[in-house]
Nucleic acid binder design. Structure first.
Lengths: 209, 209, 209, 209
DNA sequence: AATGAATGAGTGTTCATTCAT
DNA sequence: TATGAATGAACACTCATTCAT
């Protein structure tokens, strides 16, 4: 029996499986929480027996770590490579970027916030460091903008947390196809964020998007 | 025949145990998540054998339900009975109340947000209804304030979610004894919230507390 | 508050409860088997908390023992005091008595056969002795009838077991209100039993009842 | 590459274990009753940890179902493939077959009668249907024999139950090595059954065996 | 790279029973 | 005589993980 035509390149089957493990785990962890998901469930989703998962990840914890680490790296990379109109204010850039990215990758974001406590200390430290790097971006935008008089924030670190908490909450209620489009949400939140850090009253209504 | 104070009233021992079960479960659920906490751990905290828990709660799920239901009821009652200076703006009332209550009851708040998905559907519905009642308080403050021209919010429901997400995030980073007191935090957040929904520039810096 | 009028005579409440425990246990043991019935279920049927059962029976095993011992004693007493027409053949007496008694007390009979193995050795011995006494009645009827030439059985002990097994099986399929009345069943079985032990052909059709 | 005999084929170890689970469960269920047997006991008999049982049977109930289903199927197959002397009367065939089979497979027979009530409804229905098929064999022998004037039974269904109850009771008292051989028992019961359904007097003493 | 079978620890829950009240 | 609360052991079953094949 010939199987050449349908057989994938050497090694590719394993990578393919690993990818499907990641996807299945991501959905399950986001839906039920890390502790409530069993390796058996992930294996069943992937279409493989539980033992086979261990060819791809040494432990369940490593799947979580992989998902969270990858997510944080992707997030930072996405920020670094994001393209915006030249003229766009840095705060607007951040807000629009954050909302878009978090709506696109809702599951990854969700587990990155919810499953922190299920990370072993070492992994937790790594993720926390990444998160701090990400938050530092906004903090420095607020700091520099304040220094330049464009914004007025008393404590950029606190403001960072406030803004990120506000924006990160969006995927918990936003549903595609509702009466607000993603664009509307971006604009509404951008307006609130701008006003919250404003140094003076302007017309905060957003025109672009 | 007189029963002197030292003898505990019938049933009082059980109520005491139930209370300690609630407390232990609250701490554990908040710390590790509902799914990761075992009845054995709770029993050990309480100083009782696992089977004894079932004299007080029919299932583990019922402990969670009890904690969340009680929390939401207490939150709404606290709002209804909260006392503020006559002159205080409703939004300020809400912000200060919310921050104070959520810092005081950090564990209850935390599990009420984190463990929703571990509630069985019926219980979930009950809790969600309570949450909507609470959010409606802020929505109506924003709605009425907007109508009166005191605030300017395009979408009071979205603003409600934004503000509540922002405020509710506080206990995730705030630690007593840090360089900011609870009062400072209240003031910082109040300023941001006021500005976020402001219709015109005023002096947003808070003086009172 | 006066409770005299409704209070039953001293001791009678306990006896009443004990009786209800017996009845509840009988039904439950017959329906689900001794091992599958919990003291909690019995207590619930009686309308009392589990602990209260122990005021009436020292252990679950003792309830079973009580039911089985009482049943066997009642069975033997019933035989001893049963009244039949003078002219009735002893075998007919036994068959009719056995069927009637076993249809009347189906639950007791059932557990006495099914739950023997759940009796502790001492209790088992007592019950077994009673059963042997009961079977000896039929054996001696067959033995004497054979000696007198009225029946022809090669081995009265084996025949006893065969007949008793046959008769005792009735309650497993007989249902009141079916197309056969209790009387019909008696007659049908009596005919088969008579023929099975017959020494010659006669008209075995039963006329009386 | 040749795989020599000593290496067990893939999966054969599991089938072996499953078989031993069946055997252990059979003995235990027959001895103590389904409800009184724990998975731990079965596992210990098999020489395996409790969890390993679940690689072979999804639940304890499934072990019981497997045993009972297999037994009924085997019983019917055995009847269908049994070989008897050409001249042997159908009733004799049935009686001899039933006694032999039930003495050989005493445990299976015992649990098939005792544990019916521990079957979940669906499984119960399946087993009951098989039992009815088996009883129908005897009913039709009696029916046809009556029509042909060889036997005289008033109600073949009732007679079926009577005879089967009588025969099925044998393993409860018969012990190998007692003063009666299996052959003697067959003959004694055959005589009684023949007489019980006889239409006229013949020499019922069995000569063959 | 995957399977089938196993392990050893653990899960939530139930059990018969005890006992102070 | 009954209750409410507890115990200690057990229950059926699931878990993450291992490993020979």
């Amino acid at each position: 029996m010939h199987t050449i035509a349908t057989r994938s390149a050497p090694g590719s089957k394993g990578q393919e499986t690993a990818k499907r493990v990641r996807m299945a785990a991501l959905k399950r962890f986001a839906g039920a929480g890390y502790a409530a998901v069993s390796m058996r469930e992930i294996a069943a989703d992937v279409g493989v027996r539980p033992g086979a998962l261990y060819n791809h990840f040494p432990t369940k914890q490593d799947i979580l770590k992989d998902l969270m680490l990858t997510h944080m790296a992707d997030l930072l990379t996405a920020w670094d490579t994001a393209r915006f109109p030249e003229a766009m204010d840095p705060l607007e850039r951040f807000v629009r970027f954050h909302i878009r990215y978090h709506l696109e990758r809702a599951d990854e974001v969700f587990i990155s916030y919810m499953e922190l406590r299920n990370l072993e200390p070492d992994n937790f430290e790594i993720i926390e460091a990444e998160r701090r790097r990400y938050e530092a971006i906004l903090t420095s935008i607020l700091h520099e903008g304040s220094a330049a008089g464009r914004y007025s924030v008393d404590d950029p670190k606190v403001a960072t947390r406030a803004i990120i908490a506000m924006l990160t909450g969006i995927p918990t209620w936003y549903r595609e196809g509702g009466h607000l489009g993603e664009h509307d949400v971006e604009d509404l939140y951008l307006t609130m964020v701008r006003k919250a850090v404003a140094s003076e009253t302007r017309n905060f209504q957003t025109e672009t998007g």
